[in-house]
Every structure is written in C-alpha cells, then in structure tokens.
C-alpha cells in the first residue's frame, strides 16, 4: 500500500517538476509522457481485453504520419483500430506475433510513403507546437486517459468487457455479444495510442519510419513489464526506460535495447504479460 502511494506521488512529481525546469529536461519529460500515454493505451488492451499487442506502434505511427502529412487527415485516425483489430482473428496466442510482424511490415512500407515529393526514408515534417503548451496538453491527456480507463474498467460496461476477456463462450451464454465489446476495447486503446503518436509528432516536429520500429512496438510491453502490469507503475516504467536509455546510451549504445532484452526474457518467466492463456 505504502509503495503504491509512493509510486503515485513520484509520478505526480515527475509530471509537475519539469514545468519549472529547462527546455531540455522538459523535452525529455514530454517524450516520456507521450510514451506513458502509449503504455496506458496498451495496458488497457492487455488487462481488460486480454490482447497483448506487440505491434501497438501501428495506431501510434499511422496517426503520427497522418498528422505530419496533413493535420486534416486526423479525421481518419480512429480508423487505425481497423488496422489492429482484424489481427485478432489469429487468436490470443498468435496475436502478439501477428501484430509485431505487421508493425515491422509497416516499418518497411513507411520508407516508401512519398507525398508531394516529401517523405521516404527522410519522413515528414510535422506541425511543431510550443513545448510548454504541448507538455501541459500531454499531462492533461495522461490524467484524463487514466481516469477514462479507470471509469470504464469499473463500470457495468467494463465488467462485460472483462467477461468477454475471461471466457467468450460463457459471456455469450449469459447474453453478451462479444464482438461490439471487443471492437470498443480496441477502439479505446487505439485512440489513446493515436493521441500519443500525434503528441510525439508535435513534440519533435518530425515523423520518420522509425515510429513503426521495434523501439515503439515493444516499448509499452517493456514499460508494463517493468511496472508489473499496474497502471501507475507502468507510467513510472515508461519514464525509467526513456531516462535510462538517454543517460546510458553514451556508454552502452542504444541502451534501451538492453532493457528490452532483459524485460522480454524476464517477462517470459514471470507471466506478467499475456492473458492469452484465457483465450477462447
């Protein structure tokens, strides 16, 4: 209990403190913040729906690209749900790998996206927004995301979603049609991931094929593994990966991959991911 309160206080401090610090720290914190929203979106899909995605960079990256090409295209951003959701036909066991392979495919494909003579490997320039403003927007969205997920998760509707997660056939037996609940759950998760992608593009003012890379595909999985699947700890996990990676990369190249390797190996032992065992 004390640890839990301490983690929440630490997260709040991490959210507030950068407002008073220099531009550089704020940028790092903003980056960690958007990735925390991304992790929260992933966690909802994994915890409440039981689908562990290793390709959550799909809604994240597609929305970032749409925003960079033309912000009006963001109208199509909710449709990213239908890029990830169809992969659920592979079942919960295969979904992580199907989504991972699809995200890698998009990573390759993104090198060929050229629009009005721009794009390709170089990517697109995104509308840049003032860092102070985007930081405050990101903090607000993170808090709202946590509240939204908490509210949905504890509602009558959320209970039905969890019933579908635990046993689809039993849920059907008590009159719950699983499809709308699954689509709804995917839509919530993908929308939050899309918002995170847009914020990421707005912070750095640029989007390149790297937004589909394994760094982003695996990020929420790794952060959630560090946070042991708890929402506040996973937010802290996101900050840990970003800060450790940044400060240790000069000594160990691309240090985040070392964290990824350890997290993936440990996760396969600790069962902290994948409710895929409960698939129907």
């Amino acid at each position: 209990m004390l640890v839990s309160i301490a983690i929440r206080i630490l997260v709040l401090v991490l959210l507030i403190l950068p407002v008073f610090l220099d531009c550089y720290t704020k940028l790092l914190a903003a980056s960690a913040l958007t990735l925390a929203i991304f992790t929260v979106s992933w966690l909802y899909l994994e915890k409440d729906l039981g689908w562990a995605s290793l390709g959550h960079s799909i809604p994240f990256g597609v929305s970032a690209y749409l925003f960079a090409i033309n912000p009006l295209l963001l109208f199509f951003s909710p449709l990213t749900t239908f890029l990830l959701f169809p992969l659920s036909i592979f079942g919960k066991h295969t979904f992580p790998f199907a989504s991972f392979v699809f995200s890698v495919f998009l990573w390759y494909l993104a090198h060929h996206i050229v629009f009005e003579g721009k794009g390709g490997e170089e990517g697109f320039r995104a509308p840049s927004i003032n860092l102070d403003l985007i930081y405050l927007i990101s903090v607000t969205i993170l808090i709202l995301s946590c509240l939204l997920i908490w509210k949905i998760s504890n509602s009558y509707f959320g209970l039905k979603v969890k019933a579908v997660r635990d046993d689809e056939i039993a849920a059907k037996a008590i009159g719950i049609n699983s499809l709308p609940f699954k689509v709804f759950g995917f839509a919530i998760s993908c929308s939050l991931a899309s918002i995170a992608g847009i914020l990421h593009a707005a912070i750095f003012g640029h989007v390149s094929p790297g937004v589909f890379s394994p760094y982003f595909s695996l990020f929420p999985f790794v952060a959630a593994t560090i946070g042991q699947g708890k929402i506040w700890s996973s937010i802290l996990g996101s900050y840990t990966v970003v800060f450790l990676s940044w400060f240790l990369s000069p000594y160990v190249p691309e240090f985040h991959y070392a964290i990824y390797a350890v997290a993936l190996i440990l996760a396969s032992y600790t069962q902290s991911y994948a409710r895929s065992d409960r698939s129907v």
Binding site: P96, F100, L218, L264, S268, Y269, Q271, A274
Partner: peptide
C-alpha cells in the same frame, strides 16, 4: 507464446 517472447529477448 512465452517461448517466442523469450526468443525475441535473446534476439535483441
């Protein structure tokens, strides 16, 4: 599933 995740960890 877990063995595949493990293999991805080894790969990285």
């Amino acid at each position: 599933s877990k063995a595949t995740i493990f293999s991805l960890g080894i790969a990285i």
